[in-house]
């Protein structure tokens, strides 16, 4: 295919895919290409230190990076960075907290909606009043997931979201994610849990040491 024809095809793909990425790179990462459709979960696996988290951070534009990224056909540089991150939200494996209680981490308009969703993640109604200092790692991960989901992002970038959860809590999180996927949310999931990948993802990519992405097992 000639360059012009390929550019046309890519432009068409960029317009149809929810998230369309070409040549995304930063220090420690080989140029990465990927597409993501609405309602799709893409699994990214690979050895520790390969650069999976760096890729998610680059997608969220949290570190200096370069490459072409389109969301619903619009290039990333057309979005102010805060707006981009509300639409393409990264959730770190170790969530950060900046205020004394859980509820202070939700925007005023999101608090009631979040309180209504607590039970879906196996958390009691009073969890919103909890001090963040007393959160267990599992509670911290689930509340941080809720904090991100309640903002209704188009794409959620999840970095080991159930790494600290028991089987029951993991199942609750997965059910919750399935429901949101059915409503059109797209997810890129970084996980070492192969069984979880098989349960949630129809497509996967593998990142090798050095940050090179390749097609993974279906």
């Amino acid at each position: 295919m000639g360059d012009v024809a390929r550019t046309r095809v890519e432009a068409a793909e960029a317009g149809t895919a929810l998230l369309w990425v070409r040549g995304l790179t930063r220090a420690g990462l080989e140029p990465a290409d990927l597409e993501l459709a609405s309602g799709e979960l893409l699994l990214i696996s690979g050895p520790s230190g390969a650069g999976k988290s760096l890729l998610l951070r680059a997608l969220a534009d949290l570190d200096p990076n370069s490459g072409e990224i389109f969301l619903k056909g619009e290039p990333r540089n057309r979005f102010p960075a805060p707006q981009w991150r509300r639409l393409v939200t990264y959730l770190s494996a170790t969530p950060g907290w900046w205020a004394p209680t859980v509820q202070e981490h939700f925007r005023p308009e999101d608090k009631d909606i979040a309180a209504g969703m607590l039970a879906r993640l196996g958390l009691p109604p009073q969890a919103m009043e909890w001090d963040v200092d007393r959160l267990s790692t599992g509670e911290s991960q689930r509340l941080a997931l809720l904090r991100a989901l309640v903002q209704c992002p188009a794409v959620l970038l999840l970095d080991e979201p159930t790494g600290a959860l028991d089987a029951k809590s993991t199942a609750q999180v997965e059910d919750f994610l399935r429901e949101r996927l059915a409503n059109g949310l797209a997810v890129i999931l970084v996980s070492h849990d192969r069984a979880q990948g098989r349960r949630l993802a129809k497509r996967s990519l593998v990142m090798a040491k050095g940050g090179k992405l390749s097609e993974g097992p279906p």
Partner: peptide
């Protein structure tokens, strides 16, 4: 030391001034 908290805010779409 505050990196996790600051980046958590930025990742949720807060501005750098807010974070």
């Amino acid at each position: 030391k505050e990196r996790l908290a600051i980046e958590a805010m930025l990742a949720l779409g807060y501005t750098r001034q807010e974070a």
